[in-house]
Computed example of a mutant assay.
Amino acid sequence: MLYLEDLKVGDHFSSREYEMTVEEIKQFANAYDPQEFHTDEVKAQQHPIFQGLAASGWHTAAVTMRLWTECFPVAYGLIGSESSLRWPRPTRPGDKIRVEVEISAITPSKSKTDRGIVTYVTQALNQHNDVLYMSTTKIVVFSKDFKPN
Rank of each mutant, 00 (worst) to 15 (best):
R98L: 04
E17I: 04
R16W: 00
P93T: 08
Y133H: 15
A44K: 02
S84P: 02
S81P: 00
Y18F: 08
G57H: 08
R89Q: 14
D40R: 06
K110D: 07
N129A: 14
C71A: 10
K144W: 04
P48V: 12
P148E: 14
G10Y: 01
E82L: 02
L4S: 14
S81K: 10
A44E: 03
D40N: 15
Q127D: 10
A54R: 03
G80R: 12
M65I: 10
K112P: 08
G10M: 06
G94K: 05
T107Y: 05
S56F: 05
I103P: 07
G10T: 05
V63S: 08
T21N: 08
E23K: 13
T21I: 10
I25F: 12
Q35T: 10
L78Q: 14
D95A: 08
L67R: 11
A124N: 02
R89F: 05
H59R: 13
C71I: 09
M65C: 05
S104M: 09
V9F: 08
I79W: 00
V22N: 07
R115I: 07
Q45S: 10
V101R: 02
D33R: 01
G94D: 13
D95W: 05
V22Q: 06
S14P: 00
Y76E: 15
R66E: 00
T60V: 06
G94R: 04
S109V: 09
L4H: 15
L2H: 11
R86E: 05
D33A: 01
K112Q: 15
S143E: 00
W58Y: 13
E17P: 07
N30W: 01
R86Y: 02
M20I: 12
E41Y: 07
H47A: 12
A55V: 11
D145P: 01
P88F: 08
G94Q: 02
T39W: 03
A44L: 01
K96A: 12
S143Y: 00
D130C: 05
S109H: 08
G10K: 04
V63K: 13
D40K: 06
V121A: 03
T64D: 05
A29G: 12
A54C: 09
F37A: 11
I97K: 06
F28N: 06
S135A: 12
F37Y: 14
V99C: 12
V131H: 08
A54I: 12
A31M: 13
H12A: 11
H12T: 14
D33L: 03
S135Y: 00
I49V: 15
T21W: 09
V74N: 05
S14Y: 02
N126D: 15
S83L: 08
V99D: 04
E5C: 13
